[in-house]
């Protein structure tokens, strides 16, 4: 490469790289530094506290509670959302052959929660789940079933939020799985049929599931990333309550930083969260990718 060529390459990539450094890397670096301080938003002073913030996150009851809640939420939402997404996709894929119109319509219905603004949807959920006025409890009382406090019972709230999280992500996963299903060679199903995989179940295990491997990995990574970041439903529906029962990592981060003004501690949570997600994604990509791309 000659000098001129290098210069023009630099000119082309330079501005974007600079913007990236200024708008992404620099703020991230600032957050990493703040994580080791006791800085409070607006405070005149700032002090170096070493690892205290991290000790507080992992050592305090509140910090551990937020971590545990997030892990519970994630461990419900990921398998359920991926599983249901796959199930719906399989159903719609099969339905598309016999009733293409109905299949298309259902596809849109399932995708609606993805396209809708979550905050607006949260208001609807709040109305639906109102303990005495909501449609859910009105119906369940009419049927003689108990009418639980979906969003204000400490034992229940996390599961309610998980259900909403699943509702919200199934449509997206469905679309990804549908694309994956469309890409499977039809001849593989013929081969399976000839080889004696006569039941739908056997064909699923012999062809569909392994062929969806890369799709499933991608869906898992995407679902995990969004499940770990659960925030909007918590902020709009429960504010982490009652009594921190639905406090999640990202909500705690918001609460500490923007309600309690503890920027240092909030930065520490951010750093931990960032590293955890990075590690998780890397793990999923590096370890599992080898197993699903059949190289």
């Amino acid at each position: 490469m000659n000098m001129r060529e290098s210069m023009s390459t630099l000119l082309l990539t330079g501005p974007a790289a600079l913007a990236l450094v200024l708008c992404v890397f620099l703020p991230v670096a600032v957050v990493f530094v703040l994580a080791f301080t006791n800085y409070q938003i607006g405070a005149p002073g700032i002090g170096w506290v070493g690892l205290d913030n991290f000790a507080q996150l992992f050592g305090s009851r509140m910090g551990r509670n937020a971590i545990l809640n997030t892990l519970t939420y994630v461990s419900i939402v990921i398998p359920a959302s991926v599983g249901l997404g796959l199930l719906v996709a399989l159903g719609l894929h099969a339905l598309a052959r016999s009733l293409p119109r109905v299949s298309e319509m259902l596809k849109a219905v399932y995708f609606l929660p993805v396209a809708a603004t979550l905050v607006a949807m949260a208001v609807s959920w709040q109305m639906l789940l109102h303990p005495s006025l909501g449609l859910v409890n009105t119906w369940s009382s009419a049927l003689g079933l108990p009418a639980p406090l979906w969003l204000s019972d400490r034992g229940l709230v996390l599961y309610t939020l998980s259900a909403i999280g699943i509702w919200q992500s199934v449509g997206y996963n469905m679309v990804l799985f549908l694309a994956g299903l469309a890409a499977i060679q039809p001849s593989l199903y013929d081969a399976a049929e000839v080889d004696g995989a006569t039941s739908g179940w056997a064909r699923f295990w012999l062809v569909t599931w392994p062929m969806l491997g890369p799709t499933t990995l991608f869906v898992m990574v995407v679902t995990a990333a969004s499940a770990f970041r659960v925030f909007e439903t918590v902020a709009t529906l429960t504010k982490g309550g009652p009594a921190f029962a639905s406090d999640t990592i990202v909500y705690a981060l918001y609460r500490e930083g923007f309600v309690y003004f503890k920027a240092g501690y909030a930065s520490a949570i951010t750093v931990v969260f960032f590293l955890a997600l990075l590690l998780l994604t890397a793990l999923q990509i590096w370890v599992i990718e080898r197993k699903v791309h059949y190289r």
């Binding site: 060679q185 001849s187 593989l188 013929d190 081969a191 000839v194 012999l206 062809v207 392994p210 062929m211 491997g213 059949y294």
Partner: peptide
């Protein structure tokens, strides 16, 4: 009946 496919249709996994 055994059938050999044009694309072979081997299970890649």
């Amino acid at each position: 009946i055994a059938l050999m496919f044009q694309s072979y249709a081997l299970y890649p996994h």
